[in-house]
Simulated assay, not measured.
Amino acid sequence: MIRWKLAVVMAERNISNKELAALIGMHPTSFSRLKTRRRLTRIDEATLSALCRALKCQPGDLMVYEEDEPDRLK
């Protein structure tokens, strides 16, 4: 699964929801939903580019791949 790390990156850069939402041109409520996701479902290229530009980071800084836990059938 792809784990979304936007909240972590924001905390490291000490930037608020409201400030980042304004920088990327997104409504604060929509941005809050985007930030609180734990798993990355979909994100369009324009939004990802805007986040990277505003946070001065690479896309890989905002997400990480983690192996899913195997099913425990026994």
Rank of each mutant, 00 (worst) to 15 (best):
R3I: 12
V9H: 05
L51Y: 03
M63S: 03
M1D: 00
C52G: 01
D61G: 09
K74Y: 09
L62F: 07
L34E: 01
Y65Q: 10
Y65A: 08
E66C: 10
A22E: 08
K35S: 04
D61M: 14
M1N: 03
R72M: 06
I2D: 00
P28M: 09
C52M: 06
A7I: 09
L6D: 00
V9Y: 02
L34A: 07
R3M: 05
R37I: 04
K5T: 01
L20Y: 04
D71P: 05
R42G: 00
M63A: 04
I15K: 02
N14M: 11
A21C: 09
L48Y: 13
L48T: 07
Q58T: 12
K35V: 06
I43K: 13
V8Y: 04
M1P: 03
C57Q: 07
R38A: 03
A50F: 11
F31S: 01
C57F: 06
I43A: 01
R72V: 06
D68Y: 14
M63W: 13
G60W: 15
L23Q: 10
V9F: 02
H27Y: 08
E19P: 04
R39F: 06
K74L: 10
F31W: 03
R37A: 03
L55C: 07
V8H: 09
L40T: 05
G25S: 05
L34V: 12
L73W: 12
K74R: 13
R39V: 08
L51D: 00
S32R: 11
I43M: 08
R53D: 06
L6T: 02
K56T: 11
K5A: 00
S30V: 09
W4H: 04
M63E: 00
R37D: 00
